[in-house]
Write a protein that binds this DNA or RNA. Structure first.
Length: 861
RNA sequence: GGGUGCUUAGCUCAGUGGUAGAGCGCUUCGUUUACACCGAAGAUGUCGGGGGUUCGAAACCCUCAGCGCCCA
């Protein structure tokens, strides 16, 4: 410890003055940099890579705070910690941003051409991307910046090619013509989870197909696709249509004959029980069409505009066509019934909200069945633990029912699919070290962004090379993220991680947290106008205050509400610690020299050390279980209630007295403060560092040792003594309050039956030694306090106070008595419970006696 | 439609069988040499409704109602 580091603390706490310099100090010292050659056990977290287009929102602030808490604690526990930062190239999102900029100049990406467009995106990334990185520094993230990665980096791209080839060789990647989700605005395929369903108002019409010979009425919400119908389907057991199965029926508007087929998929209860089969434009219809060998004409282009139907509707937008088709049918007298609005689930593009169009097209898929089985098993057999475990069923539900994953995207920004086609339709898949044969052309599509982020835990560490980082830090330790990306990202990492690593999971624990919502628990959204800006909060209250508020609200896997004044509350807590430390320093608190022998301490010192040790144990246990809210709660109440409100107050007399007792208190207080600042450091790194360094003269808390519980520093009886002191103080204060005695006023009083700690009590309650005759007394347990109020006692107030106490005591006594009179209770309740109730009965009985006597002794008013 | 969760103080939430808790808010008083971003004292709950199990239920079971989320 060097005296030189000790600093005087400013009279008021100003977060802005300390935070930026401290972060710079940590960077300069290289505390966050992991050492792959270290002998310490590794502890690794990879950050959920934020989109390169993104900026820090309140959800990141929560996610990062929790990760930082874990990583900082582990660092203090002596692990070789690596928290690896980076960003995701975010295919669609980023392409959209750059295209929008081009559009402002009246250009499209096609004007630039693929190569030029990609250059433009990289340029955009260099100039405007990654704003979030600077904001992460603001928050205090102890990430290793020397290992920052980007999913489009060369190394990560090699990992993408490598795994694509391995999956292809294992026949787990295939190309096929399937019906996929298509965004007519982004002009790309989407995977199932990139489609968000909402209940929208549509229309439901019943249309009579056929002519005077055979007719059947079908029900549909998508009349415009009827030009692409290949059949009409009914349920095989439906008696209404039994005779029609196998017959041909006229398709109106296009005047084509189509068959009536029977398929179990048809719900006889839905509409008329007869549905149109449009294989190229509906996923269910596609299944039926495949089963029955039905034609699947494509009558819409990639923009969602009608095309090649051979009707007058060609060239109309799909929604415009829907109306026109129904109008035309109505004219022809073919509309049997219409319902509008008809509310039903409609899919929307996650990125741009455009209504998704099912589209038949050639795409690349991952065959997920064997991979998903392994991913489910890894959690089932405990190789991966999901915290909280209540969320595991959701994981199973999804992973056990996962459809094949469409991984090709018709975009330019992303990892181009490493497949090359020869002049005669040859297909060659190239790994990172392969060269495609001359004259072959590469597949123009790119891969789903989540394909590359699914490799994140190992691609960032150098895989497929066996780098030092990979050997030291892989598999990673725990994954901390929001449950909202459990399917998008977490499940994919498990899937791909197990595949490349022969069943070894990419992490052993998935710690899921919830979403940050507004003060009323409502989801934050731009349309609601209830979003908040974490940067603004950090400016106003400090990063520590924001972090502590978020961590304190973070119960595992559940959403949390956030209101600005709660952050103010955390700032108040920081100020409290600031002032408590100033007070401690003022009174000479120190960490120098041996801590006095525990057994020789008085009750107050034993008590605070006992409470400290209990707090250390609780905080450590909670943090190891990702119970951030409970851990913060423990620290908060220990620091504010036990330390500030009680220990500091009860110790003032000791400090004032000087001598040996003061020396002991100084050393104990120094120890407690040192330890509590260490406990606080992961959650509130800035203020804890500032206070600890200035108080102890030490270099840093970042690499300081994490407190360890020590049962030899506990004494139960001291807790009982201090509890009694607290009761006494509370009752004296209450008496003073009820009697209208100013807090600052000194009152003459004496104690009867009090053992030790009289000086501390007198200090806290502002009582002077009484020489006169007592004018009033109160009884607290076995202790009597006699006051000299020189006859000025407020009898009315005193009677009210005692009457209230009497009522409480009588109620408690009755409760206890009823229990003890209950034969069932006496026969079946455990001994210790019965004993506890007996003690309660005795205590309340004594209280009633004493209060009654006091009431009787009061003069009449 | 299938899952799943929730309903505890004015608000947001802890609390998995033994006298109901926290933060914020509220009322009153108060500048006592750490702190008014503070201190002290105080008020506020048939723990969603009904039924059951149990000596004992906010907690376990059943049921009804309301709200939410995920998936289709």
């Amino acid at each position: 410890m060097s005296q030189a580091n000790k600093r005087e603390l400013a009279a008021t706490f100003s977060p802005a003055d300390i935070e930026a310099p401290l972060y710079q100090k940590w960077l300069d010292a290289g505390y966050f940099k992991a050492d792959a050659t270290s002998d310490k056990p590794p502890f690794t977290i990879v950050i959920p890579p934020p989109n390169v287009t993104g900026s820090l929102h309140i959800g990141h602030a929560l996610d990062h705070t929790l990760q930082d808490i874990v990583i900082r604690m582990k660092r203090m526990k002596g692990f070789e910690t690596l928290w690896l930062p980076g960003m995701d190239h975010a295919g669609i999102a980023t392409q959209n941003v750059v295209e929008k900029q081009l559009a402002a100049q009246g250009k499209s990406r096609h004007d630039l051409g693929r190569e030029e467009f990609i250059k433009t995106v990289w340029k955009w990334k260099a100039e405007s991307g990654g704003a979030i990185l600077a904001q992460m520094k603001r928050l205090g993230d102890s990430v290793d910046w020397s290992r920052e990665r980007f999913t489009m980096d060369e190394g990560l791209s090699k990992a993408v090619q490598e795994i694509f080839k391995r999956l292809y060789d294992a026949e787990l990647i295939y190309r096929a013509e399937r019906i996929i989700n298509w965004c007519p605005r982004c002009l790309t395929a989407l995977s199932d989870i990139e489609v968000e369903h909402s209940d929208d108002a549509g229309e439901f019409v019943q249309v009579r197909y056929g002519d005077e010979n055979i007719s059947i009425t079908v029900a549909t919400t998508r009349a415009e696709t009827m030009m692409g119908d290949g059949a009409v389907a009914v349920h095989p057991e439906d008696p209404r249509y039994k005779d029609l199965i196998g017959k041909m029926v006229l398709l109106p508007l296009v005047n084509r004959m189509i068959p009536i087929i029977a398929d179990e998929l048809v719900d006889p209860e839905f509409g008329t029980g007869a549905v149109k089969v449009t294989g190229a434009h509906d996923p269910n219809d596609f299944e039926m069409a495949m089963r029955h060998g039905i034609d699947m004409p494509i009558i819409m282009n990639e923009h969602g505009v009608m095309a090649n139907s051979g009707t007058k509707f060609d060239g109309m937008d799909r929604f415009e066509a829907r109306k026109a088709v129904v109008d035309e049918l109505r004219l022809q007298g073919r509309i049997v019934a219409e319902k509008r609005p008809y509310v039903h689930a409609v899919g929307h593009c996650q990125r741009c909200d455009t209504t998704v169009e099912p589209r038949l097209s050639m795409q690349w898929f991952v065959k997920v069945a064997p991979l998903a089985k392994a991913a489910g098993d890894a959690v089932r057999d405990g190789r991966i633990k999901i915290e909280p475990e209540e969320l595991a069923p959701r994981y199973f539900d999804w992973i056990d029912n996962m459809h094949d994953w469409c991984i090709s995207r018709q975009l330019w920004w992303g990892h181009q699919i490493p497949v090359y086609y020869g002049p005669n339709g040859e297909v060659v898949v190239c790994g990172p070290n392969d060269t495609p044969p001359a004259g072959y052309t590469q597949d123009p599509d790119v891969l789903d962004t989540w394909f590359s982020s699914g490799l994140w835990p190992f691609s960032t560490l150098g895989w497929p090379e066996a780098t030092d980082d990979y050997k030291k830090f892989y598999p990673t330790s725990v994954l901390v993220t929001g449950y909202d990306i459990l399917f998008f990202w977490v499940a994919r990492m498990v899937l791909l991680g197990l595949f490349v690593n022969d069943g070894i999971a990419p992490f052993h624990t998935i710690a899921l947290h919830g979403l940050v919502r507004d003060r009323f628990g409502k989801k934050m959204s731009k349309s609601r106008g209830n979003t908040v800006d974490p940067i603004e909060f950090m400016d106003k209250y400090g990063s520590d205050a924001l972090r502590f508020t978020l961590a304190r609200g973070a119960n595992p896997g559940t959403d949390q509400a956030l209101a600005e004044e709660w952050i103010g509350g955390s700032r108040n807590f920081a100020t409290k610690l600031w002032n408590a430390t100033r007070f401690a320093v003022l009174n000479g608190a120190t960490i120098e020299g041996e801590l006095p022998a525990f057994d020789g301490l008085d009750d107050i010192n034993k008590w605070i050390l006992t409470r400290l040790d209990e707090t250390i144990e609780a905080v450590d246990n909670y943090l190891e279980k990702f119970e951030f809210a409970k851990a913060c709660e423990e620290i908060y109440h220990f620091a504010w209630d036990d330390l500030c409100d009680w220990y500091l107050e009860l110790s003032k007399a000791s400090f004032a007295s000087g001598g040996e007792s003061a020396e002991v208190s100084k050393r104990v207080l120094g120890h407690v403060l040192d330890q509590v600042l260490r406990l606080l450091h992961p959650a509130m790194p800035f203020i804890s560092e500032e206070l600890w360094c200035s108080f102890t003269g030490g270099e840093t808390l970042v690499t300081a040792t994490w407190p360890k519980s020590n049962f030899a520093m506990r004494d139960e009886s001291s807790k009982a003594v201090v509890t009694q002191l607290q009761d006494l103080v509370t009752e004296i204060r209450r008496f003073r309050n009820d009697q209208g005695i100013k807090t600052s006023a000194k009152v003459n009083a004496n104690f009867v039956g009090l053992g030790a700690h009289e000086a501390a009590l007198r200090q806290v309650c502002r009582l002077e030694v009484m020489t006169g005759v007592p004018g009033a007394k109160i009884e607290v347990g076995k202790v009597i306090v006699e006051f000299d109020l020189t006859g000025a006692i407020d009898v009315k107030a005193e009677r009210a106070r005692l009457t209230k106490d009497l009522a409480t005591a009588e109620k408690d006594r009755t409760t206890a008595k009823v229990k003890l009179d209950n034969e069932g209770f006496m026969a079946k309740a455990p001994m210790e419970v019965v004993q506890e109730i007996r003690t309660r009965l005795a205590q309340t009985t004594a209280d009633i006696e004493s209060i009654t006597a006091q009431l009787a002794a009061l003069p009449n008013d």
